[in-house]
Amino acid sequence: MSQDALLDLPKVVMTGRFWAGIENHRGIVEYSADKIRIAVNSGEIGIHGRNLTIERFNRDEIAIEGLIFSVDFGVPYLEEEVSQ
């Protein structure tokens, strides 16, 4: 069984810098054309870019289109992980 399904970890798939798909998410935390924050089991995933739109949004997957500059896992999550 794959790790993402076993541990309920997010799985991020990107096609170039114009499309990203995130599986095993928990919902949208923040959304604007420049930034999207997605809640995942172990914190957040932040996507920064320009003209970002949510192409598809359901329980299994969230698909994002636009010009993506960066993808990060959020600072609070990182600090927590380091302290552990």
């Binding site: 935390v29 959304y31 054309a33 192409e55 598809r56 329980r59």
Partner: peptide, 22 residues
């Protein structure tokens, strides 16, 4: 985002979400 998340939790189909200023 709360409304959209609740819609997702209820299995409603949502697509082509866009926003200029949030």
């Amino acid at each position: 985002q709360k409304a959209v998340n609740m819609a997702m939790a209820r299995g409603m189909a949502v697509w082509d979400v866009s926003s200029r200023d949030g």
